[in-house]
Write a protein that binds this DNA or RNA. Structure first.
Length: 430
RNA sequence: GUGGGUGUAGCUCAGUGGUAGAGCCCCGGAUUGUGGCUCCGGUGGUCGUGGGUUCGAUCCCCAUCAUCCACCCCA
C-alpha cells in the first residue's frame, strides 16, 4: 500500500544542502556589513495582530486585500503571518521604548509570507533582509541607507548588474493633494482607461502612471507630474539627496513613475533593479515613512528603511555566475579507518584534532566499508587531505596522510606531527 | 484571480495504442590497503492522481493536483 506523499506547501521551498552555502555566503556579508555601519539586529515574531498590517500597509493595498495569510487564533483573535518586516519592527520599537528621544539603526532578516501565484523570484514564503532607521529626518541618512546597499552590491560583484531608481513622493499632504489632482485628471480621460486603471482610480491612482498599456501612454505622458507638486521641504530634501549621491559617486536614475506599493511611504523612495531575473526585477526597495510611527500609536518619529529579497539576490548571484568556486567545498580532511579497533581510535583522533584545530573541517568516516569505498567517499567529500588509520598505522601508532588534489607524496606521521602539519596547511584552523 | 508550457528512475531527459529506456548518481567487481579515468555487472519506476474511450492507455479525451513562466502585484 502506497500512502499519498505529503508535499511542501505551494510556494514554500526547502533550502537544500546544495544551496545553503550560497545563502550562508550572502548572510555572512549582510551580518558584517550591518555591523560595519553600526546597525543592530532586531528579531520580531512572525505572527502579529492583523490590524498591525492593515493600519500600516494600507487597507486597500493588494497585500492587505488579498495576499495575507490571516487566520483566527484559538481565542478568536485575528492573526496574520507577516507579509513584510517594517510594520513589526515599528511596533516592537514603540512597544519597547526604543524610539524615546533617541535614534536607532536596526536591521532584521527572516521569512515573510504572501499568498500570491509563485513564479520566478516570487514565493509564498520568501526571505527579506531589511534595515529601519528611526529619529533622523535629513537626506543624509537616506543616502547612508543607499550607500550601505551599494557597498553590498560591490562586495558581491553585482554593481554593474543593478540600477538605482529614485523618486520623491513629497510630504504626506503634498502626496494627498497630488493624488486628488491625478484622480481628477484620469477621471477626465475615462474613455482611455483600461480595466486595471479604472479599478485603481480610487484605490491607488499613482499606480496608473506605471501602466504599460500602449493606448494609455499618451494620456499618461500628459498627466500632472508628481515631482512638479512637491512641497518646498521635500524638494530641498530630494535635491540634497541627489547631490550627496553625486558626490559619493553613486549613479541613479530619477523615475517619476516610481511608486511603492505600500501606503506608508513619503518623500524618498528608491529601488534597485536588475534585468537579469525576468519579470521580478526589483532586488531591493525602500524609502522614507515619516508618518508611520505616529500612525501606529507612537510619538511622531521620522524613519527610513529598505528591504531586499534574499531569494532574488541569491538567484541573481547564481545566474550571473558570481558564486565563489570554493563555496561548495565543505570538508578539509577526511579520516578513514579499517577494523573495529581502528574505528574506535579514529573517533578519538578526530576529537583530539578538533580540540587542537577548532577551525578545521574534519569528517570522520562512519559505517565501515572497503578501502576502495572509503577512499571514494573521501574523494567525493571534496577533502584535500585523506587520513588513513588501518592495521599497520594502528600497530605503529601512526596515521597515513594522503594528498588528494596534489602530486605530493603520501606520508606517515604520529599524532603531534600530524597536528602540526595540518596547522601549517590550514592556517585558519587554529 | 487570469493565460500558456510541463509532469516517465534520486537527478537530467528520450520513447511507443500491446504494461518502459539512456546518461548521471548510488552499490559491487576488474585492482589483498589507495579515490579521480576506463570497462563489466547490479539496485531503483503502480510513466503525477482520478475517471473516460478501447480487447488493451504511459501514449488519445476529460477532470484534478503539482510545477514552471507570464499577467496582476511585489522583495
Amino acid at each position: 500500500m502506497i500512502l499519498s506523499k505529503i508535499q511542501a506547501i505551494r510556494g514554500m521551498n526547502d533550502l537544500l544542502p546544495e544551496q545553503s552555502p550560497l545563502w550562508q555566503y550572502f548572510e555572512g556579508h549582510i551580518r558584517s556589513l550591518m555591523s560595519r555601519y553600526g546597525y543592530q539586529e532586531i528579531r520580531t515574531p512572525i505572527l502579529e495582530q492583523t490590524n498591525l498590517f492593515k493600519r500600516s500597509i494600507g487597507e486597500v493595498t493588494d497585500i492587505v486585500e488579498k495576499e495575507m495569510y490571516t487566520f483566527d487564533d484559538r481565542n478568536g483573535e485575528s492573526l496574520t503571518m507577516r507579509p513584510e518586516g517594517t510594520a513589526s519592527v515599528v511596533r516592537a520599537a514603540i512597544e519597547s521604548g526604543l524610539l524615546h528621544n533617541q535614534t536607532q539603526r536596526l536591521w532584521y532578516t527572516g521569512p515573510m509570507f504572501r499568498y500570491e501565484r509563485p513564479q520566478k523570484g516570487r514565493y509564498r514564503q520568501f526571505h527579506q533582509v531589511g534595515a529601519e532607521i528611526f529619529g533622523l529626518d535629513g537626506p543624509d541618512i537616506d543616502v547612508e541607507a543607499i550607500l550601505l546597499t551599494a557597498r553590498l552590491w560591490k562586495q558581491l560583484g553585482l554593481t554593474e548588474h543593478v540600477t538605482l531608481e529614485l523618486n520623491s513622493l513629497g510630504s504626506n499632504e503634498a502626496r494627498a493633494a497630488y493624488r486628488e489632482r491625478l484622480i481628477e485628471y484620469f477621471s477626465a480621460h475615462m474613455d482611455v482607461l483600461d480595466e486595471d486603471a479604472k479599478r485603481r482610480l480610487h484605490t491607488n491612482p499613482l499606480r496608473i502612471l506605471d501602466s504599460k498599456t500602449p493606448e494609455m501612454q499618451n494620456m499618461i505622458e500628459q498627466a500632472p507630474q508628481l515631482l512638479d507638486h512637491l512641497d518646498d521641504d521635500s524638494r530641498t530634501h530630494f535635491e540634497t539627496l541627489k547631490s550627496l549621491l553625486d558626490s559619493a559617486g553613486i549613479p541613479y536614475v530619477v523615475n517619476p513613475r516610481l511608486v511603492r506599493g505600500l501606503d506608508y511611504y513619503n518623500r524618498t523612495v528608491f529601488e534597485w533593479t536588475t534585468t537579469a531575473l525576468g519579470s521580478q526585477g526589483t532586488v531591493c526597495a525602500g524609502g522614507r515613512y515619516d508618518g508611520l510611527v505616529e500612525q501606529l500609536g507612537g510619538k511622531a518619529v521620522p524613519a527610513v528603511g529598505f528591504a531586499m529579497g534574499v531569494e532574488r539576490l541569491v538567484l541573481l548571484l547564481d545566474t550571473l555566475g558570481l558564486v565563489p568556486g570554493d563555496l561548495h567545498q565543505q570538508v578539509d580532511v577526511y579520516l578513514m579507518a579499517f577494523g573495529e579497533a581502528a574505528e574506535r581510535q579514529a573517533m578519538l583522533l578526530g576529537e583530539s584534532l578538533r580540540d587542537a584545530l577548532p577551525g578545521l573541517r574534519l569528517q570522520v568516516h562512519c559505517g565501515g566499508g572497503s578501502f576502495k569505498s572509503q577512499m571514494k567517499k573521501a574523494d567525493r567529500s571534496g577533502a584535500n587531505i585523506a587520513l588513513i588509520l588501518g592495521e599497520d598505522e594502528l600497530r605503529d601508532q601512526k596515521v597515513s596522510l594522503k594528498y588528494m588534489r596534489e602530486s605530493l607524496e603520501q606520508q606517515t606521521l604520529n599524532e603531534s606531527e600530524l597536528a602540526q602539519l595540518l596547522a601549517e596547511r590550514f592556517p585558519n584552523a587554529r
